[in-house]
Design a protein around this nucleic acid. Structure first.
Length: 442
RNA sequence: CGGGGCAUAGCGCAGCCUGGUAGCGCACCUGCUUUGGGAGCAGGGGGUCGCAAGUUCGAAUCUUGCUGCCCCGACCA
């Protein structure tokens, strides 16, 4: 993509409404614009990141055996009356009526709808287990939206719902999601720690929050520092095999958010030198809630013995749009965003320091095409800005690599390759630079 | 929803107290000079001063009402 043809409205000054760093950087770097309180438009650069995150979530859900579908944003109130949540959910649910005065709502979550879909379609125990998920916009009318996309009212969420014949089977489904989540966040360059969680209005008695550590995190968290050192399961893990050793490895040690924190237990179970108290951002939440919805909504299947079985369910959320902010909170410096390569909107920025100069333009065009040929996603700054402004902007938007091309270097046959995260620079021939970049991308 | 604050050009702000017909920096446009970490000079464009009433000869400025947004708290992916 040529910057001269892209849409990237960068702000030089901090907008005053943005307090926390991710919100500030998302506005400045042209990722989002606020449409109204807690509701954002995703500009091209931010949209690319959102799509990358969504795709990683999708791939790991699929790997864990979940099946993607898509449910609507607008739901009928009737279903929610059936589960009893129409009244329970309160003002957080945006209620709408249509032209016939029917009660509708903008879905804050989808347990009712998925249960309705499942009960209508499935009659036999042979069709279980299943885990169905979608990635869809939700709306929760928060009393006070804040922190940009981290706590918006409209947000993109992956929510999965499992259906099993027994509590034991359901726990297996839960474990699959547990492992998938560890992998998902690790692939985004994040260290996530599962913590014992409150179940909130969704209900249920087995639940973990997946927290990533960031100084600006919204809640205090306490855990055994050993958990931070653990690696997520590799991509050859067998989701149909026994996952309990992995779960045990991650849940044996103390980890809790402030709501669930037990200081006495913390001090008893964790040696002093491993007691980590930090701040964290919740990016995922998994629940097992058994028959909370299947019972009132009569989601039954017929078992091998001919008797009806009430299905056992869980639900599993990931805040996809929140993750964009969370990643920035976890990965930035004074100059701007530092994208982990896996979610970066482009692989690299190619900076032409002297547009209009024949040799520089020629070298840049050549490099641009070679990068594209090597399947690198490149943002080519071919604009007529001054060098300093280009450097500042490129640092701000935080692409992992900068390929800097100017007449001085070219005289020596060299271009400069800068790593955004470390700041390291090396001078290379143009071909060496492309090869080096292609190697990092593969 | 309680408490606090803000609303003037795309962004950041001054002007308001003490009413007199709107200004600064950055950004933007034109030209010249510059050109490896947010250049200089000159010229230029852009505003129903959040909305509505009221007071007044006259309102960005005073009064009242409304709306929007931000921050702290309680609540949440």
């Amino acid at each position: 993509m040529r910057l001269s043809r892209f849409f990237l409205p960068i702000l030089r000054d901090d907008p005053k409404e943005a307090e926390i760093v991710s919100h500030r950087l998302m506005l400045r770097a042209g990722l989002v614009r606020q449409a109204s309180a807690g509701i954002y438009s995703w500009l091209p650069l931010g949209f690319r990141v959102l799509k990358k995150i969504e795709q990683i979530v999708r791939e790991e859900q699929d790997r864990a055996g979940a099946i993607e579908l898509l449910m609507p944003t607008i739901q009928s109130a009737d279903l929610w009356r059936e589960s009893g949540r129409y009244d329970d959910y309160g003002q957080e649910m945006l209620r709408i009526s249509d032209r016939h005065d029917r009660d509708m709502l903008y879905g804050p979550t989808n347990e009712e709808l998925i249960t309705e879909i499942f009960r209508n379609a499935v009659r036999s125990y042979r069709d279980l287990p299943r885990n169905l998920y979608h990635i869809q916009w939700k709306f929760r009318d928060e009393i006070r939206p804040r922190f940009g996309v981290m706590r918006g009212r409209e947000f993109l969420m992956k929510d999965a719902y499992s259906f099993d014949l027994s509590v034991e089977d359901a726990k297996r489904s839960y474990n699959k999601m547990f492992v998938a989540y560890l992998r998902t966040f690790e692939r985004m360059g994040l260290k996530s720690i599962p913590m014992i969680a409150e179940t909130g209005p969704i209900g249920g008695d087995l639940s973990h929050e997946f927290i990533i550590l960031a100084d600006t995190g919204e809640s205090a968290v306490f855990c055994d520092a050993d958990l931070v050192a653990l690696d997520a399961p590799s991509d050859d893990i067998d989701f149909d095999g026994d996952l309990t050793p992995v779960i045990e490895q991650w849940t044996a040690k103390y980890a809790a958010t402030e709501d669930m924190h037990d200081a006495a237990r913390f001090e008893k179970e964790v040696p002093e030198n491993r007691r980590l108290s930090a701040r964290g951002i919740e990016v995922g939440h998994i629940f097992f809630f058994g028959t909370k919805y299947s019972e009132p909504m009569k989601c039954h299947v017929q078992g091998a013995d001919g008797k009806l079985i009430t299905v056992q369910s869980g639900s599993y959320g990931i805040g996809v749009s929140r993750l964009v902010g969370a990643i920035i909170e976890a990965s930035h410096d004074e100059a701007g965003i530092v994208w982990p390569a896996q979610v970066a909107p482009f692989d690299l920025g190619l900076i032409n320091l002297k547009p209009g100069d024949e040799s520089t333009d020629g070298a840049c065009e050549d490099l641009y095409n070679k990068c594209l040929g090597a399947k690198l996603d490149v943002l080519y700054d071919d604009t007529d800005e001054r060098a300093g402004a280009k450097f500042k902007s490129m640092d701000l938007i935080g692409l992992p690599w900068q390929l800097i091309v100017g007449p001085k270097g070219l005289k020596e046959g060299q271009v400069e390759l800068k790593n955004r995260a470390s700041g390291d620079r090396q001078s290379l021939s143009p071909d060496e630079a492309v090869n080096a970049l292609a190697a990092t991308a593969s």
